[in-house]
Design a protein around this nucleic acid. Structure first.
Length: 481
RNA sequence: GGCGACAUAGCCAAGUGGUAAGGCCGUGGAUUGCAAAUCCAUUAUCCCCCAGUUCGAAUCUGGGUGUCGCCUCCA
């Protein structure tokens, strides 16, 4: 079975083939660092990180680059508001980004280029575009002439004529006259600096780069002229990625990326989660309320291209689902020792191929998760058998096989259950003999039909995380947590 | 107005020609003093609507309805 991916450029699925054998050059459009990241950013970062992990597990060596756009009007505005510099705002939110991603369990990219570190590459690109007749200066600004790039619109599937027709009413003739642009869809490659704004020297005067050019420059610098996969949120398809293509391909004459992949948006009450609508929840707020792994499950449960509705109920549900998965993942930590688990390389090939079959189809993580749940449910059941009956139904070797497979597959998707949660260590709270004594007291009370007393004892123990299980024959066993 | 996507049980969701994965709830039974936990069983004759292609369609084609995204900053 081979990996198939949906390419925005061709609007179809095709077999994934790399430029260099077994090597993947992958670029993810990161964030503009002017505020804390919200759940929408989380989805993008998380999904593409998992895609990267999956590619690695599939045997590819992945060079994964994600940028920070740290020159931008919004950062500048924020700096003005807060009375600091653009650099200070960027640093603050880059640091926050790394904190949030660490909490989410998103792995680090291989490099995080920044616009401010890529000025030479940016200026070189603009210069080459100018030389080739794709860019023109106007009053200290430099614009890209979209009409000179015949393929403009190929990624987002639109034509300049259609856009002009459709945009009537949006692009007023008055604005067009005031603009320095030759065509309303031309976009800035370089913007002349205004008084008091950060600026860099250039052949066109002091100024700063426009929004799209930094990605073209960074991809070229870090990964080369043509890369394998370029990813980002679907809202970046137009104009950002379209413009990147125009900038890069006009200069190199080669495809910028062979595969363009876009993830769907997070929706809140029917509308896209976004800064401008103010309907966002930041990652840090979210993680104060829900487990990181539950958030991960919430996101990976849906195919990456589809929109996902954010509701509190959905996160609560995801938390319950995670408990099930967690129970399976903890199985080996809890019972592996007594069952004599030892062979770390054990793996159930049938389950692995089932997982691979699902996920190889355009990263169908939801399909893959079904395999994980199948295993987790069974292990969880076996765990209950150990607690209730003191024995398992399935032989230890088979359980180890299942558990190791589950752990491995979960790891690809970034799911991990911390063994501490399985701790039976009683360094705090009641000691075993104390519990036994209380359980005995309760059973005395039950024998005397003093149920108020017995229920009180049961509640007290429950409050300490100790669950009592009354078995037939008047035997009571207990377990922690 | 232009471009694109989606529509599957109570909710979430996979499934692209061969007769509906998985998750979360719910329900019935066992067990219990009652619970909890656990165990067993169970939950879409049907995939937005209509027409067509086919031996056969949730899956393909045409039409309709609805929802969303992009066209302005946006992950």
């Amino acid at each position: 079975m081979t990996l198939t991916v949906y390419n925005t450029l061709t609007r179809s699925k095709s077999t994934f083939q790399t430029i260099e054998e077994n090597k993947v050059r992958m670029y993810c459009c990161g964030i503009t660092v002017y505020d804390y990241c919200h759940l929408g950013h989380a989805r993008t970062c998380l999904v593409w990180d998992v895609v990267r992990r999956y590619l690695q597990w599939s045997g590819y060596e992945v060079n994964y680059i994600q940028n920070f756009t740290d020159i931008d009007d919004k950062i500048l505005n924020r700096a003005k508001q807060e009375g600091t510099s653009m650099a200070a705002v960027s640093e603050k939110f880059i640091a926050a980004y790394f904190e949030d991603m660490a909490r989410l369990g998103v792995g680090q990219a291989d490099a995080y280029p920044r616009a401010t570190h890529t000025l030479n590459g940016i200026k070189r690109l603009i210069y080459e575009l100018e030389q080739k007749g794709f860019a023109y200066p106007a009053d200290g600004d430099v614009y890209y002439a979209v009409q000179n790039f015949p393929e403009y619109g190929k990624l987002s599937g639109r034509k300049l004529e259609d856009m002009q027709a459709g945009a009537s009413g949006r692009v007023s003739t008055e604005d067009a006259q005031r603009s320095k642009k030759q065509c309303p869809f031309d976009f800035a490659l370089w913007k002349a600096a205004k008084e008091g704004e950060p600026a860099w020297e250039s052949p066109w005067g002091n100024g700063r780069p426009g929004w799209h050019i930094e990605c073209s420059a960074m991809v070229r610098e870090m990964l080369g002229e043509t890369i394998d996969i370029h990813v980002g949120g679907s809202d970046l398809t137009f104009p950002h990625h379209e413009n990147e293509i125009a900038q890069s391909e006009a200069v190199t004459g080669k495809p910028l990326a062979n595969y363009w992949l876009h993830n769907g948006m997070i929706i809140v009450e029917g509308k896209k989660m976004s800064k401008s609508l103010g309907n966002f929840i930041t990652i840090r707020e979210l993680l104060d309320k829900y487990e990181s792994m539950a958030v991960r499950l919430f996101i990976l449960q849906t195919q990456y291209r589809k929109p996902v509705d954010f509701t509190e109920a959905a996160l609560t549900t995801a938390t319950s689902s995670w408990s099930t998965l967690k129970a399976g993942l903890l199985f080996g930590h809890q019972y592996g020792k007594q069952l004599g688990f030892a062979d770390a390389d054990l793996q159930d090939e049938i389950l692995v191929s089932k997982f691979k079959l699902a996920v190889d189809d355009d990263f169908n993580f939801a399909g893959g998760l079904a395999v994980l749940f199948e295993i987790a449910k069974n292990l969880s059941k076996e765990g209950h058998m150990i607690i209730h009956e003191g024995t398992t139904k399935t032989e230890a070797r088979e359980l180890e096989l299942q558990w190791r497979t589950l752990t491995k597959l979960a790891e690809i998707l970034g799911f991990e259950a911390k063994p501490e949660q399985a701790s039976t260590d009683s360094s705090e709270g009641l000691r075993d003999w104390e519990i036994d004594a209380l359980v005995q007291q309760r059973n005395e009370a039950r024998k005397n039909k003093n149920y108020a007393q017995s229920d009180r004892l049961r509640d007290e123990l429950q409050a300490q995380g100790i669950t009592l299980i009354d078995k037939p024959g008047g035997v009571t066993i207990w377990n922690r947590g």
